[in-house]
């Protein structure tokens, strides 16, 4: 790969890449260089939301973020929702809620949904159905399984201490 070196901070770890071309997106580096295949390449146009990650705490499209523009940022992917050092198989509360609510069908949109939902849940109050729908409006589910996804996120918001 031609380009320049960059170090990205992903899920708390500094990860160097030897050469990144200017047009290479964060999504490509996450998947192809780091093997973090949670974020999916759906439309590659910023529409579907399957590639959603957080940068400095805010959900964004990794397919519309150029890797070289992400240096010195805090990037969290779905793989980073569970704190480092947690036992194998441990799930973050939002993951637990989707699993228990049968809110996963084919699973392709799930990583993006989890990231968006996780960001929503940082607000310390129970969420209404409308708030969750608005918060997840940038994540398409091709199986159209929205009802259970929204219910699961609402229940996760109510379950918090």
């Amino acid at each position: 790969m031609t380009g320049e070196p960059v170090t990205l901070r992903v899920n708390g770890a500094e990860r160097p890449v030897a050469a990144v071309a200017p047009w290479t997106t964060l999504l490509t580096v996450l998947r192809d260089e780091f093997g973090l295949t949670g974020a999916k390449r759906g439309c590659n146009q910023g529409v579907c939301g399957a590639c959603t990650v957080t940068i400095d705490g805010e959900p964004v499209r990794s397919c519309l973020s150029l890797a070289l523009n992400c240096a010195d940022r805090d990037i969290v992917t779905v793989e980073g929702l569970v704190p480092a050092g947690a036992p194998a198989g441990a799930l973050a509360p939002v993951q637990q809620a989707l699993a228990e609510g049968n809110a996963v069908q084919c699973g392709f949109c799930t990583p993006g949904i989890l990231i968006s939902a996780h960001a929503l849940l940082r607000r310390n109050a129970p969420l209404t159905v409308d708030e969750v729908r608005a918060g997840l409006s940038g994540n398409l589910c091709r199986c159209s399984g929205y009802k259970k996804i929204v219910e699961a996120v609402v229940s996760a918001s109510e379950a918090r201490p």
């Binding site: 939301g49 959603t52 805010e58 959900p59 973020s65 968006s116 608005a134 409006s137 940038g138 994540n139």
Partner: peptide
């Protein structure tokens, strides 16, 4: 405009 992740960008 668009949706929350796009509004963040």
């Amino acid at each position: 405009i668009a949706n929350p992740p796009v509004r963040n960008m």
